[in-house]
């Protein structure tokens, strides 16, 4: 029973989010919020891998997310819908159910390849270069998209709503919700596995003392690239979902403000804590929604809240601990990652 604790938890979450949406219990707004929470969990957890566990400082998460958003959207809109730019759909509507997840993966792969190009110059050196370079990446991405007139340039790109309608036409289901749920689950599964294996734990050694890691046979340069690609690739998948959630994207949606939002959620949750990332992504997304009636003032309230948090609890909500470290009773129901590693 205990062995399947996390599986059961996943099923419960599925029953509380996807199934009611399917049955029409939740209205559109609640569904939107649930999907936004899922996407934010993915973004926070994936950036936590880079900034929290590995201790590097990437401030360009939105650019990788945006690249995934554009690649996924271009693919789905081109292949599945009638579009002003691409003309009639390439594939019959029936393919849409397969093409959509594949396009998400393609968005993730594109973001991972882009991140590899970024990581080659930044990880040849030690220190703060990644922060400087990823800061530049925000601008590079924005100007790049703005200068490609064919996909809308600064005016943005749309047609993703049509994609969802095509999928809905084949089988009626909350497809975006379903894929957000499974992408989020896969992200958490992958990151949890990675950081509990000896291979992935090497990134924590890099954070603690890079020279010692290198001398203790850790191939630090390669491991840093792998972890960075993994984090950015997952952000690309989240971007693809995000684009279909909004139905309209433009380069400014994936600029420094979005990067900062993800950074805030990572530091709020705690560096190197996966459960912290989940808690903070859920809490922060809901908080931003609750503050929506205050309009611009919410961008005053949230930084103030953050300052307060940093003064009272500089390590974030969870620090580098997981939920079962704080509440040992949870161990009765959920095995820790270390136990899974050692079981037969």
């Amino acid at each position: 029973m205990r062995r399947y604790g996390l599986h059961i938890l996943a099923v419960v979450v599925f029953l509380l989010t996807v199934v009611p949406s399917w049955l029409g219990v939740y209205n559109g707004y609640i569904q939107f919020l649930l999907m936004l929470i899922g996407i934010n969990i993915m973004l926070t957890a994936s950036l936590n891998l880079i900034n929290g566990y590995m201790g590097e400082f990437s401030v360009g998460h939105a650019a990788f997310m945006g690249l995934g958003a554009y690649v996924t959207s271009l693919l789905t809109v081109w292949l599945l819908t009638h579009d002003n730019v691409f003309g009639p759909p390439v594939l019959a509507p029936g393919f849409s159910l397969v093409i959509f997840p594949l396009a998400l993966v393609a968005g993730g792969v594109a973001a991972a390849i882009f991140s590899l190009l970024v990581s080659i110059p930044s990880f040849r050196t030690r220190g703060d270069y990644l922060a400087v370079i990823t800061l530049a990446v925000n601008f590079i991405f924005k100007s790049l998209i703005e200068n490609i007139g064919a996909i809308g340039g600064p005016r943005g790109f749309m047609g993703m709503g049509e994609v969802l309608a095509v999928m809905n036409g084949v089988i009626r289901a909350p497809w975006l919700m379903i894929w957000t749920f499974f992408s989020c689950l896969a992200t958490l599964f992958i990151i949890r596995n990675f950081v509990s294996s000896t291979y992935g734990k090497g990134i924590v050694a890099i954070r603690e003392d890079e020279i010692a890691a290198e001398v203790m046979t850790v191939n630090t340069r390669r491991l840093k690239m792998v972890a960075f690609m993994l984090g950015c690739g997952l952000a690309g998948v989240a971007g693809g979902l995000h684009a279909h959630l909004l139905g309209f994207i433009n380069p400014s949606s994936y600029f420094i403000l979005q990067s900062t939002l993800v950074l805030v959620m990572v530091y709020l949750g705690g560096m190197g804590s996966l459960s912290g990332s989940i808690i903070s992504a859920v809490g922060f997304t809901i908080l931003l929604e609750l503050l929506r009636p205050f309009g611009l003032l919410r961008w005053v309230a949230t930084p103030l809240l953050l300052i307060l948090l940093m003064l009272r609890r500089p390590t974030g909500i969870m620090g580098d601990r997981e939920l079962h470290d704080v509440f040992p009773r949870l161990r009765k129901y959920f095995p820790s990652a270390e136990e899974r590693l050692l079981e037969q």
Binding site: I190, S197, A205, V218
Partner: peptide, 25 residues
């Protein structure tokens, strides 16, 4: 972690906790 160079599994094993990885771990 000092066993790093002696681990005989790759990135895909690390992402899925394969049985090969668990043996090694």
């Amino acid at each position: 972690i000092a066993h790093f160079s002696q681990m005989n599994y790759g990135i895909l094993d690390a992402l899925t906790l394969s049985s090969r990885l668990r043996r090694s771990e």
